[in-house]
Design a protein around this nucleic acid. Sequence first.
DNA 1: CTGTTAGCGCATTCAT
DNA 2: ATGAATGCGCTAACAG
Lengths: 336, 336
Amino acid sequence: MTIREVARLAEVHPGTVSRALNEQTRALVNQETAERVLRAAEELGYQPNPIARGLKTNRSYTVGVLIPDLTNPLFPPIMRGIEDRLGDAGYTLLIVNTDNDPERERSQMVAMRARQVDGFIAATARLDREVLAEAAAGGAPIVLVNRSLEDGSVAAVTVDDRHGIALAIDHVVGLGHTVVGHVAGPQNVSTGHRRYLGYLEAMARHELPAAAAQVTFADAFSEAAGARACRELIDRTDHVTAIVAANDRLAIGCYDALEELGLGCPQDISITGFNDMPFVDRLHPPLTTVRVPQREIGLVAAELLLKQLGDQDGIVGEVLLEPTLVIRQSTAPPER
Amino acid sequence: MTIREVARLAEVHPGTVSRALNEQTRALVNQETAERVLRAAEELGYQPNPIARGLKTNRSYTVGVLIPDLTNPLFPPIMRGIEDRLGDAGYTLLIVNTDNDPERERSQMVAMRARQVDGFIAATARLDREVLAEAAAGGAPIVLVNRSLEDGSVAAVTVDDRHGIALAIDHVVGLGHTVVGHVAGPQNVSTGHRRYLGYLEAMARHELPAAAAQVTFADAFSEAAGARACRELIDRTDHVTAIVAANDRLAIGCYDALEELGLGCPQDISITGFNDMPFVDRLHPPLTTVRVPQREIGLVAAELLLKQLGDQDGIVGEVLLEPTLVIRQSTAPPER
DNA sequence: CTGTTAGCGCATTCAT
DNA sequence: ATGAATGCGCTAACAG
C-alpha cells in the first residue's frame, strides 16, 4: 500500500494525497478532495510508511530510552508512564538496558542516533557529560530521569530525595527515636548522595547527632551490601534504635542483618526504606518506606521531551516530584 | 555523514562504498579499495543510516515485542533474554504493552507493521488467530511466548506447565498429603488451562481424588482473586491439607485467605506457587514454587525468530522449556 | 488549490 | 572491479 495507490483510487496526484493525509498540511487542500483521499486511504487500509517519511523529514517518531536494568522493579512503572504519554503522541520507544556500563551506554546511544531517534530519555545513573554533549550536539533532546546535572543544563525529572529522607526521619523522630543511623547508598550515584545529604540535613534540623559512626555506606543498592553496611553500623554504635536506609533493597538487607544478630524489627530497631517497591508491603514486618511516584516520573519525563520535540528550545532545568511516606510496621517507638 | 562523504574521502564511487561496507557484497570489491573505504568510514565516524537502508531493502532490523504489562515481574527477565540475543544480532526492539486488550493488540501490531518491523515476539495471552494470520500474511515471522496454537502452525516457546504442576504435586504427595486442592487460574488463558490439566493428570497418576469440589477457579491471576478462590475452596472441602496454586500471585492470595481464616501455613495447609517471582523467597513463609526459566524463554524465543528471519521458512512448532521446583517453607508434611 | 519535480541515503542493476 | 543510473515511499519547494 503506497501513497500512489491511494492517489490512483482518489484520482489525484500523490503529492495531494500526502498533503491531505497530513494534519499539518490538510488545510492546503480542498475540503472535498481531502475527504475523497481520506476515504480512499481508508478503503485501501493505507498506512503511511514511517521509514520513508523519516528519510525525508529526518524525524523517526521514535525515542530512545536508556535504563540500567529493566529487571529492577523500579523501572517498569516509569517505562509505562513514558510509553503511555509518548505513545499517545505517536512515538514509539526503543528501549535498551545498559547495566550501567558506560561503554554500553555510549554504543547504544550511537546506535540509536544512527536509527534517527528524535530524542532520548535516560535513566542511567551516570552518563558522562561527554556522552550527553555528544548526543546533544546531534540535535537530539534529552531528558534525564532520576538524576540531574548540577548546572541544570539538561532537562531532568527526579524525586525530591532530601525531602523523602526528611519524611522518614521526621517519622522516626516523632516516634521518639534520638539515635538514628543511616545505611547510605553508593555516593557516586546521585540518589545515594542526595539521600545522604538529606539525612544530614534532617538530623541537623532536629538538632540530633549525626556522627560519622552512625552512617555506613553500601557499595551497591543490593540486599547483600545493605546487610553488610547494617552489620557494620550496629557494630560501631550499638545504641542505634532506628535505621533509615537509602532504598528498599538496602532496607531488606538490614532485615537480614538484624535477623542474623538476633535483633527484632521494630522492637529493637526500626527500619525505613525508599521507593516502595512491589511486595515490600508483604515483608515481615511490612516495610515503612518512602513512596516515589514512578509512573508519574515517566509521564513528566515524556511531557518534557515532547515539549523539546515541539518547540525548538523547550524547557530545561529540573522537575522535582514529591515523594510520600508510607507507614507500615517496621517502625515503632523505641523501647525504654 | 553520508555514504557520499566517505566516497569522496576514499576517492571512489558511492556505490563502491556501499559494497565495501556491506559484509555480503565486500567480495565484489578489490581488497585494497575495500580497506581504503573502511578506513575512510572509520575516520569520518560514518554510521550507515538504517532508515535509508530499510527503505531500499524492506528490512528495518527492528522487531516488535508485544507484552501484556511490563509491570508484571514475570516479563522483564524475558525481555532481557530477548534483548540480549536480538541485540547481539543487530536488532532493536520496539516494545509495547497491550494490557491484554485485543483492540490494542491489533492496533499496535498494525502500527508496528507500518514501521516495517521484521518480525514479532508476542507474549500476550490471547491473540486471536485473525490478528496472527493478518500479521503472518504481511510476511512477518512471529514467535509466541508463554502460549501456543494447538496446531503448532506458529513458532512458540512455552514452559511445560503440566510438568511444572506435576513437580509441585509430586512434592506435596511425597510429603504425605492426600487431599490436594487446586486454585486454578482463568481458563481462557492457556497457562491457566494447562496447569489445571496438569493438576488433573498428576492427581490421577497418584490415584488420588481430584473432585470438582477440590478445585476453584480464580477469574484473574491476582492476589485478590486467589484469596477469593482459596476461601471458596476451604469452605467447600475443609479437609484439604495442601493447595497447589496456578501461580505465585494466586498463592499469595491463598496466604491472605489462610491468615483471615486463622489457619497457618504450612502447619494447617501447605501451599505452592508457580513462576518464582522476585521476593517470594521473602514472604512468610518463603514460598515453595515452580521456577520457570524466564530469561531462557526470551533467549530461545529470540533464537527462533532469528532462524525465521534468516532462512525463508524457519522452524515452527513449540519449544517446551522445563521448569524446576524450588522447595521453601510453605510446604510441610500434613499434621496428623 | 493541485500537479510537477527533486531528493532524503542507500542498495542494486546494468554498463563499462 | 568499479562507475552510472534507478528507485524504495514520501515530503517539500516550486509552478501553474
